[in-house]
Simulated assay, not measured.
Amino acid sequence: MMELAMALEACGKHFIWVVRPPAPQVEILSHKSVSAFLSHCGWNSVLESLSNGVPLVGWPLAAEQFYNVKLLEEHIGVCLEVARGKSCEVRQEDIVKKIMLVMDETEKGNAMRRKAREVRDMILDAVQYENDHKGSSVKAMDEFLDAASLMREGNKWAADRGV
């Protein structure tokens, strides 16, 4: 924690440090001045960040977070891993270097922000339900509910007939 604190101070960037909830994470991430999110990369945090077009600096701690960081960094291009696990040794200089790489006008930082905006647009399109347009998530939910309804009707039909 001390290395992270010193790194945040050394990089000269403004930051909000939330160690324990509750914090209005979605509100913070939706603010136009947020340019990166240091996160453990749990899936809810990933979705909240990318729904707002904010690239991530990943520090996975447990469970699926390690896979999420790998997916986000190597396949989608919206994350840069800064450390791995609870007991890893992290040096201030390494954290500063990665924060600056993401937040400054570097080729990598610009590419990550562009990709994060592209992912945001895909997410927004997937949940859109306007006029005759239904996004892919809305369509999938409709199909799921239709299937559940048919299954329920089928089970009721079978129960009524003693099947």
Rank of each mutant, 00 (worst) to 15 (best):
68 N>K: 01
60 P>Y: 07
50 L>Y: 09
67 Y>S: 08
68 N>D: 00
40 H>D: 09
38 L>D: 03
68 N>S: 04
61 L>V: 15
72 L>I: 06
40 H>R: 12
57 V>R: 02
61 L>R: 14
65 Q>V: 02
71 L>S: 05
65 Q>L: 04
54 V>T: 01
60 P>T: 11
49 S>N: 11
41 C>W: 00
52 N>R: 11
62 A>E: 15
42 G>N: 05
56 L>H: 09
72 L>D: 06
61 L>K: 14
49 S>P: 05
48 E>D: 15
46 V>M: 10
42 G>K: 00
47 L>M: 14
61 L>P: 07
65 Q>I: 04
48 E>F: 03
52 N>D: 11
70 K>R: 14
63 A>E: 13
48 E>L: 06
70 K>A: 10
62 A>K: 15
53 G>C: 03
55 P>W: 03
69 V>T: 15
46 V>K: 06
59 W>H: 13
52 N>F: 11
48 E>Q: 11
67 Y>T: 07
70 K>V: 12
68 N>F: 06
55 P>C: 07
73 E>G: 02
43 W>M: 04
61 L>Q: 15
46 V>L: 04
40 H>I: 04
52 N>H: 14
69 V>Q: 10
63 A>S: 15
58 G>V: 13
39 S>T: 14
55 P>M: 08
63 A>V: 13
64 E>R: 02
38 L>I: 14
37 F>K: 10
52 N>L: 11
67 Y>C: 07
51 S>W: 10
55 P>R: 14
64 E>H: 04
65 Q>G: 01
51 S>G: 15
56 L>G: 07
38 L>E: 01
48 E>Y: 03
